[in-house]
Amino acid sequence: MAETIVKEQVKDKEPLFGKKERQLLSDPLNDNNPITVQVLGICSALAVTSLVYPSLVMAVAVVFVTAFSALFTSLLRNYIPKQVRLIVQLVIIATLVTVVELTLKYLNYPVYKQLSVYIGLIITNCIVMGRLEAFSMANKPWRSFLDGLGNGVGYGVILVMVAIIREIFGKGTLFAGSPIELALIGPSADYFINTTTNTWFSWYSNNNLMVLPAAAMFIIGVMIWIQRSYNTKLVDVS
């Protein structure tokens, strides 16, 4: 008898980083990526990814909002009245987004200006509310936090990847606007690859299509294609 009770207690205790927890973090990075598999949060992914630095800031902001809104929703999940649960979730998200906005105004005003409405639009990002409704309302705080963190990072990674491609080929720079701005492909002597004197790259000029939001759609499309070609279980059998 005594033995079984001890066993049950052990079972009840969830490890900090057990198999399930690791899966919560890694799933959204690949098998269940919010952008390439669930196709959520596309609006901001198309709009803010023309430069890496703002995308990075956006990614960090979304990770913060998904992780902590999941944590707070989960902490309150037994107290939130069912009739108004969506409104409560929305208030939690909106509060965190406002915190992000105020912090950004305080720390880096030019980036705040650059991201403009898209910081506010994190509130409507389907990833955030989707995870709260599907996961946090029914799970314990630590797991919800990890789930939110994983989904935020899964979104952010794609955002930054798209932005790297778009900025290099569209503007010929990397991290423009940040303290470590790199000038990569361009006509002036300061550029890493000087297209006017460099014989190998003289044929190249910056591709304006990459700056347009449409380019992000193509890039995300190609990413989905690449991901599905090695991760065959994602391919719909129909």
């Binding site: 939130i80 108004v84 409560v88 208030v91 509060t95 406002t98 105020l102 305080y106 005003y109």
Partner: peptide, 27 residues
């Protein structure tokens, strides 16, 4: 439901006002 909403709204309002006031000068 009403009590919950009231408490939540008040908490959030106080929190955000405080943060705004603390960051206002530099912002």
């Amino acid at each position: 439901v009403l009590t919950f909403i009231l408490i939540m709204t008040a908490t959030v309002a106080v929190l955000l006002t405080g943060l705004r006031e603390a960051t206002k000068a530099r912002a």
